[in-house]
Design a binder for these strands. Structure first.
Lengths: 264, 264
DNA sequence: CGTAATCTTGACCAACGTCAATGTTCGTGG
DNA sequence: CCACGAACATTGACGTTGGTCAAGATTACG
């Protein structure tokens, strides 16, 4: 670990609730309207599933595609990326994960997952016991149904991404990706106003939208010239003057999905 | 309905088990190893969910994206396509549905679905009562867990498709698509030997892999010249001399997913 | 046999990828 | 604090891939 990563992770532990310290009862995520509200019984059940609260530095791998250790995670603070490597060496960022998102469900329920998860920033994670999932389905059917709902919503988003990659041009792809991200951030009260920090470099942004690094630049320039979005500098600052206009431009008009993430 | 469609659908009803005639107990799909095996209790539960068995002609819409009428379907015979229209008029085929696949889960559990489902051939469908889903989660937790597993598997396939669309060239995209289809068909004993009929025209194939009609031709020609796959004529005949070789060529090597479809 | 629809191919053009050169940021060591 | 080097951002030039247009071939169906 580099000196910088050490200091960052120390700073993180210092500034925020430290490991094992975040009790489900006090969880700040659950309070937000974007998430499903728990009944008292559900809350105690989930609290018993929770085994630990851990931190990872930026860049570290959170989930190994092959190695299922019987744990699932909820991302509590920070950003992560689901990615998949292809035989030809290229890699695709399947999705950006934000606080409240679930990690490792597929790996545990299917045995392996085909994708890895990496921390984009320093993160903290709730560690949940995957072996209690069967019990969850027996004792908390409402919660189980919520879990399914969450996956179905993810599928809707994945469908939309597929259509965008398949049918739209470079500028719109990036516009769409930014719109989706912006919506998810504001839903979770993570982007106040119109600007936020984007912890992806150009290479990663390119892998996310299926373009080359260089062409991403051209598309970003177009977005800037049209006044639709500004993405500046390394570890970029994003500024979207008029989210509506960007959404219209990039075809991000058909969105009905309010994220509901059932487990913390 | 055209005269032809009428005769087809009549023929279908005549040759196969007719409407309301397919009892879950006798369902031939469930017998295949590709599907989850039901316990007696689960079987009776699902049998009680089943409201009817209906037929649709090729081209008919099976699921309206906005109109949820409290039913979900299991495709019993024939092919269907999940598709999504984009604001710019283009459309994307998100996935091909084969016998055993579930239709309308998202539409019912989320309220609307963002995609439509169309019959590619004449089809028959099990009609299931979506309102009994909550009860299913309460009374049949194992089955509910299977339902979630099925969705997670779909997500794995969707992830792979996204990576393919984002990172690979035309020929490989089509090769991958054919490989995936071939595997699913043989799993379900729908393609004996190496050849089968593909009920998609070139436009639909293009929409599925995110290319133009014309470029699909070029890619198909390449595949033919390399001896990897032959796709011939309108309402095409597909012939894959060596599925392994095609899979290697198109990057379809990372597949661990044996389809498990939990509800009939 | 004729018409319409789709398949198929060639010619051309736009979008995107690759390569290479230059600027910019950031971390490191004097 | 400054100077340097490495990694990344940015831009231009050029090649490749894939889209568009249009014409002819084939098939389905009246």
């Amino acid at each position: 670990m580099t000196a910088r990563a050490q200091s960052r992770s120390a700073e993180l532990r210092g500034q925020t609730q430290s490991e094992r310290e975040v009790r489900c009862r006090d969880c700040t995520l659950r309070r937000q309207s974007a998430f499903r509200q728990f009944s008292p019984a559900e809350l105690t059940f989930v609290a018993r599933m929770k085994r630990a609260h851990v931190a990872r530095a930026a860049g570290e791998q959170i989930l190994d595609p092959n190695n299922t250790d019987g744990t699932i995670y909820t991302l509590y603070e920070g950003w992560a990326a689901r990615c998949r490597k292809l035989p030809n060496g290229k890699s695709q960022i399947l999705d950006v994960l934000l606080p409240g998102d679930l990690i490792g469900l597929a790996a545990n329920l299917l045995g392996s997952s085909g994708h890895a998860v990496h921390a984009l920033t320093a993160v903290t994670l709730c560690v949940l016991d995957a072996n209690k999932l069967a019990m969850l389905f027996r004792e908390q059917p409402e919660l189980a149904l919520g879990l399914l709902r969450g996956r179905l919503q993810e599928q809707e988003r994945a469908d939309a991404r597929l259509a965008v990659l398949g049918q739209m041009g470079a500028t719109q792809r990036i516009g769409y990706w930014l719109s989706d991200l912006h919506k998810r951030l504001t839903e979770r009260a993570l982007a106040r106003g119109r600007g936020w920090r984007l912890p992806l470099d150009r290479r990663q942004l390119a892998d996310a939208v299926g373009l080359s690094r260089v062409h991403v630049m051209r598309a970003l320039r177009t977005l800037r010239e049209e006044g639709l979005a500004e993405v500046r500098g390394r570890m970029s600052t994003v500024n979207i003057p008029d989210p509506r206009r960007l959404a219209r431009f990039s075809g991000y008009a058909e969105l009905r999905s309010k994220s509901v993430c059932p487990i913390l």
